[in-house]
Design a protein around this nucleic acid. Structure first.
Lengths: 125, 125
DNA sequence: CTTTTTGTATTATTTATTATAATACAAAAT
DNA sequence: ATTTTGTATTATAATAAATAATACAAAAAG
C-alpha cells in the first residue's frame, strides 16, 4: 500500500491520500485490522507536512473507514458501513454517467467498467 | 433548463454551472442546437459575476459540449464526441465504485443506478 | 450607419482553501 | 523514564475562486 501523490494535480494532497486508502480498502489491498503507516512516517516518506496526513486520517476516521486510538496508530476499521451512497456521491455518479454517455461510451461498456472496478480484489491494474 | 446553485457547496460555482449543463445535455433537457442563456443574462439571473459564468462556458466550449461564436451566443454543440472517459474520469469512477462498495451497495444495485442515470431522458427525478 | 448585444480578454482585489511550520499534550508502548 | 502516537492550536504562505471594472471586435438590430 504505497501512495502515489501528484503534486501538480488539482485534487488536494490530503484528498489524494484519503481516496487512495478508500480504494485500497475497497479493492482488498488493505484488509480489516491492517495497520496504516503512522502520520509522521507517511508524511516523511511522502515529503509532506504532518498535518496534511492528519487531515486525511481524520477524514477517514470520521467516515468510519479507519480506527485511530491515540497510540497504537491507525488501522482499517472492518466494521461494515451501510446506507449506500449519499446524495452528494449519487450526484457525482450521475455526472460521471453523463460524461461517459457524452464521450461516446455505451451503457454496457460503462457497466462492464463499473463491474471490473467493483469486483477488483488484489490483482493489479 | 434552470440552474440550481448552492453557494455553500464545496464545488466551485463555475463547475456547478458546467456540471449541470453537461447533465442537461446528457439527459436530453438540452438538445443539439439549443441556445444557452447569454453569459450576462445567466450571471444576472443567478446573481453572480459575469466572469464566473464565462469560466463555465469557456470550459464547456473547450470540452466540445457547446459552440460559442462571438455574437449569436452559445449553443449546444451536437457534434458527437468520442474516445470514452479519460484517465481522470476513470479514476473518479473507480473511487465512486469503491465508495459504493464500502457503503454496502451491492453490484447489481450500483449497475441499476448507473443504468437509470444513463437511460434517463426527459423525465424528472 | 449607428447603436446594442455578444463572447472574450485583461487587471486588480477580496475571500476561501490548502499546505506548511512550530509546538504542545495525553496516552500508551518500550 | 523515554519515546512514539494521534490530536490540537496558532500562525503564515501559497493557491484558487469569485468579484469588479473595463475594454474590444464582431455581428445583429434599428
Amino acid at each position: 500500500m504505497l501512495l502515489q501523490l501528484d503534486f501538480s494535480s488539482e485534487i488536494p494532497i490530503y484528498l489524494q491520500i484519503r481516496n487512495q486508502i478508500v480504494i485500497g480498502i475497497a479493492e482488498g489491498q488493505l484488509k480489516p485490522g491492517d495497520k496504516l503507516p503512522t502520520i509522521r512516517a507517511l508524511a516523511q516518506e511522502a515529503g509532506i507536512n504532518m498535518m496534511t496526513v492528519n487531515k486525511a486520517y481524520a477524514l477517514l476516521k470520521q467516515e468510519g473507514h479507519i480506527i485511530a486510538d491515540r497510540r497504537s496508530g491507525a488501522a482499517v476499521s472492518g466494521i461494515p458501513l451501510e446506507g449506500g451512497l449519499d446524495e452528494k456521491e449519487k450526484e457525482a455518479l450521475r455526472l460521471l454517467v453523463s460524461q461517459a454517455k457524452l464521450s461516446g461510451m455505451k451503457l454496457n461498456e460503462l457497466l462492464e467498467l463499473c463491474t471490473a472496478y467493483y469486483e477488483n480484489e488484489e490483482e493489479e491494474r
